[in-house]
């Protein structure tokens, strides 16, 4: 459901990625590991279609959504409002109230008052509701407490069943526990 053919990306004169080729099948989870600045986030953004490769080709099947780190939300909206707008923009239907309850989040608190961990939980609830074929996650474990981490593992299981997952992380244990394959990115 995702194929990268000799993808390279350059910002100005600096090559961030060179000749990355990979494929991801349905039901597969791929972890991206590597030091800061190795191009993990850039690679995820290329996979999502938010960036165009300088060279090479990205082929995607189905709908992909990208979860940035930290997850972006409008601070003046509540969690309920955000999910309802997202559902409407994406043309989806879903039990937003159930999703918020599952992730232990309040409905009517402005997101400006959410902690980083709560925002990460909301981002996972949002992805679950919008149900894309391909989940692209940038350091999804960051800021999550133990309970949040268990929710993440459950969400990744669900995402695997619906399509595929690529996530970037610095947590080698998480990568080894969840991913079918690990791609190590060194400095470009």
């Amino acid at each position: 459901m995702l194929r990268l053919e000799a993808v390279s990306k350059r910002f100005g004169r600096d090559w961030v990625l060179r000749d990355v080729s990979l494929s991801l099948g349905r039901g597969e989870v791929l972890a991206l590991l590597g030091p800061n600045g190795s191009g993990k986030t850039t690679l995820l953004r290329l996979m999502a279609g938010l960036l165009k490769p300088t060279r090479g080709r990205v082929v995607r099947e189905g709908r992909a959504l990208f979860l940035a780190n930290p997850p972006p939300f409008h601070r003046h909206l509540t969690a309920k409002e955000h999910l309802l707008y997202d559902l409407a923009f994406h043309g989806g239907r879903g039990d937003w109230r159930g999703a918020l309850a599952r992730y232990g989040l309040p409905e009517d608190l402005p997101l400006a008052a959410f902690s980083s961990g709560m925002k990460k939980r909301l981002a996972l609830a949002r992805l679950e509701l919008l149900s894309p074929d391909l989940w692209l996650l940038d350091e999804p474990e960051t800021a999550l407490d133990q309970e949040g981490r268990e929710l993440l593992l459950r969400a990744l299981d669900g995402a695997r069943a619906r399509g595929g997952v690529v996530f970037a992380t610095h947590d080698r244990a998480l990568a080894e526990a969840v991913a079918d394959r690990v791609l190590w990115l060194g400095a470009a």
Binding site: R45, A48, G49, L50, R63, A64, L65, F66, A68, P72, F73, H74, R75, D86, F89, H90, G91
Partner: peptide
């Protein structure tokens, strides 16, 4: 600026269609 300040522009651009 509403999107840039909250870094939500990418999410908006990833909507289908």
């Amino acid at each position: 600026a509403l999107e840039v300040e909250d870094a939500t522009l990418d999410d908006l651009l990833l909507t289908p269609g």
